[in-house]
Design a protein around this nucleic acid. Structure first.
Lengths: 333, 333
DNA sequence: CTGAAAGCGCTTACAG
DNA sequence: CTGAAAGCGCTTACAG
């Protein structure tokens, strides 16, 4: 079997307490004994059992990350940020992909209640607000990622949607576009609302009147976006530019426009939002979120909470994205 | 604090042993006491502490997954398969992304030696064979994913590279191509060698002589592929078709050919290998691996090993991929 | 600076 | 069918 602390203390002729102190760099150990013990540890290739240690310490050095079932390059980049920050801070990461829409909470709270994790990062863009409240009530460190939350008591890190909407729109305006169609998300999505506010602000700054006909809605996927767009076209002329509130819609539109013989960017400029990998290949301009950094910040926030239980003042970080300019908004020559 | 087993047994007026038996559905508990205990468990909302349980049981119900640092949609799909299979079998998944090339082993063996995981899935396409041997020597359940392994004692699940190379090539031959350039991986890559063998077999079946000039090498990335390809072009005419041994190369070539005015598929047909998400958008035909299924099978294999320690007969699964036909190999009309 | 002892929260032979 | 007791492998006041 594996070497245990007990074998070390017997071999070194000291008590378990002493070995434990050496292991944890406790200052009150004489240099001699410390060295003697260390020698034995090395010789016997001892690695402490984390389970036992954690049971005593009542913590696990592990954080849970709850993903939506459908996750793409976008989420993997986020995960990369989470994992790298966690490992720098000596934490492990347990992932949990929710399988159907409903069981997100069940999985998360099981992990939490079984004490397998010290805290949770929630990456659930479409999780209803009341379920977030429910998890919050378990009273364990929690950070919501990639989603602006209205409740000020919930820690979150998200892209600054207002700023992003503003930048994307301003970028199009700079290119000379004035009739800018926005394909927004659904009613009630805070993310969409903030992007919309940014869109309006950019128009205002450029002295362009907001035209409600130029704001259509989707469910953040291409199917619903197409329906809305076809509807729009039956009634109105083609706009100068289209600002899609996420990349999936933008990529869909890129193909769709090609199909119906509309050239991008010559006839209409197109910009997305998110910055998924795909966009690079598709040469789609997009407002790129700092995904890896968002993952890293989420971990920092979470571990901060885990390690100082007292002051539970929630923070809500908004990280700024940047427009990555590609062919779809190239200046027309 | 959290409710513990002790509180349950006091409240129910039985011993800890009895509560434990109820928890684990041990048959030797009378119906009455079982019901009484269950009632208390429900009332006090007791969830057993997994740490304590695992320490007693000397296992963790957790498997580790070691990813390469650069991971894309391809690996996330694999992870999805791993996570879903694991959760069906009541296991948790700890991920560990290696940060620089060297520390893969260190991270994995730490997880293992600290007893945080019961077994490991290794997703390290480029990990040197000797490092795999090293991990193998820790003598803990291990499955290597997405990589054919020569050592018959190592469990692995991989795509059937020979079959894939054969199918991809046969697909091109069916399209009327005869001079088929293969952009292979590096010397010594078993994956590449197997794909090459499939390529040759397909040629043979079609009575096309193998031409060594039509097999060039890359390092499985586009930069090295370009260099090889330019080299090739200086000496030879454009082939009928190009079979790229992975999608990254194929996507790179797709753009590159466009740049130099070669039309796909009119002038040259193009097929990739892997089936990453990107290819769909790019309309690239590719030999698609059953990635999610590979992840699932890896978990099954691993858990099988974990749960019956006796018969350590290694299995090496080869799952078959399929050609997904898209525009890049469309029949010329 | 060091050790004996209790504790973390479960499980499981062993008796009865 | 049930309980007392030892054990899983660590940590940490408390004494000295």
């Amino acid at each position: 079997m594996a070497v245990t602390l007990k074998q070390i203390c017997e071999e070194a002729g000291v008590s378990k307490a002493t070995v434990s102190r050496v292991l944890n760099n406790h200052p009150l150990v004489s240099k001699e004994t410390r060295e003697k013990v260390q020698e034995v540890i090395q010789r016997l290739k001892f690695t402490p059992n984390a389970l036992a240690r954690n049971l005593s310490l009542r913590r696990t050095d592990t954080i849970g990350v709850l993903f939506p079932w459908i996750f793409n390059g976008f989420f993997s980049t986020l995960l990369r940020g989470v994992d790298s920050a966690a490992s720098e801070l000596n934490y492990h990461v347990i992932t949990s992909l929710s399988h159907d829409a409903g069981d997100e909470n069940a999985m998360a709270s099981r992990l939490l209640k079984e004490r397998r994790i010290d805290g949770l990062i929630l990456m659930a863009p479409s999780l209803p607000a009341d379920q977030i409240e429910e998890l919050k009530s378990i009273d364990v460190p929690l950070v919501v990622l990639q989603r602006e939350i209205a409740d000020p008591e919930v820690n979150s890190v998200s892209v600054d949607n207002f700023d992003g909407g503003l930048k994307a729109t301003a970028h199009l305006i700079e290119r000379g576009c004035r009739r800018i169609l926005a394909i927004a998300g659904p009613q009630g999505s805070l993310d969409s609302d903030r992007r919309e506010a940014g869109y309006r602000e950019a128009l205002k700054q450029a002295d362009i009147a907001f035209d409600p006909d130029l704001l259509i809605r989707s469910n953040f996927n291409k199917e619903t976006a197409f329906t809305s767009f076809e509807n729009f076209r039956r009634r109105f002329a083609m706009p100068d530019a289209i600002f899609c509130f996420n990349d999936e819609i933008a990529l869909g539109m890129l193909k769709y426009l090609k199909t119906i013989g509309v050239r991008v960017p010559e006839d209409v400029a197109l910009i997305g939002f998110d910055g998924i990998e795909f966009t690079e290949f598709a040469e789609l301009s997009t407002l790129t979120m700092p995904m890896q950094e968002m993952g890293r910040q989420a971990v920092r926030l979470l571990i901060k909470q885990i390690e100082c239980k007292e002051k539970r003042t929630a923070e809500q970080l908004l990280l700024k994205g940047a427009v990555v300019e590609r062919n779809s908004t190239r200046r027309r020559s």
